[in-house]
Amino acid sequence: MTTQTALIEVRDLTNAFGPQVVHQHLDLDVMRGEILGIVGGSGTGKSVLLRSIVGLQRPTAGSVKVFGENLLDLSPEKRSQVERRFGVLFQSGALFSSLTVLENIALPLIEHAGLSRDEAEGLAVVKLALAGLPESAAYKYPDSLSGGMIKRAALARALALDPEIVFLDEPTAGLDPISAAAFDQLILTLRDALGLTVFLVTHDLDTLYTICDRVAVLSQKRVLVAGDLTTVAATKDAWVHDYFHGPRGRAALQASARLTENN
């Protein structure tokens, strides 16, 4: 699946908020078609990295290129065109609370793809089905949805324009294990079906073991190591060791090993 072309190139990125330096000389590549998991302790700037890449946060220094373009240097029209090629699932969903689920998904279709309202809502129903939401959720408002349904609806909105990259910020946080596993499978299916590149910020070890092709560890203000799970888990670093070889890490490893055997 993975071909060696980098869709996202982060070079020498530095992010600082006042005296507090979050990233320093950070380098990262995201390849086409891969699912890249970003892990790191709380406060190591995982979300800040995501925000820097999608252009919501101007880096203090360094460059971020998405599809070979530096978002912050583009004119508003060109930037909007590039932004249509990626979808973002924010940590708490960020669905527009004044619109129904269906309208949330139809909005980018109406605004960017130039569809009529009926066409857009028809297509939005397909995205709902793909994201695994029940029909009954279509005309509900976000405040009457459960956490798992909000995540699915937000994913459906992120996928509305058939993006090439999706950024997922802790997609399984706050979901019960069954929903979380189903969400993992959903991402895997969609990646295979749509040829997506997935940038996944997560704390969920099961997600890492089940779906990620590569894992990048953020530590000491940079990407400490990036590679497949065995490489990363073998890294000689106290934090990485605790993370992957702690009780939860071992359990997730065993679970994924059992899963591979059964298949």
Partner: peptide
């Protein structure tokens, strides 16, 4: 294979799906 997977996912997702009823 990618096309097959795409058609299959869309087909499977829509197979059991009925049009949501508009209030």
């Amino acid at each position: 294979p990618a096309r097959q997977a795409l058609l299959n996912s869309v087909g499977s997702a829509l197979r059991t799906y009925c049009q949501p009823e508009k209030p």
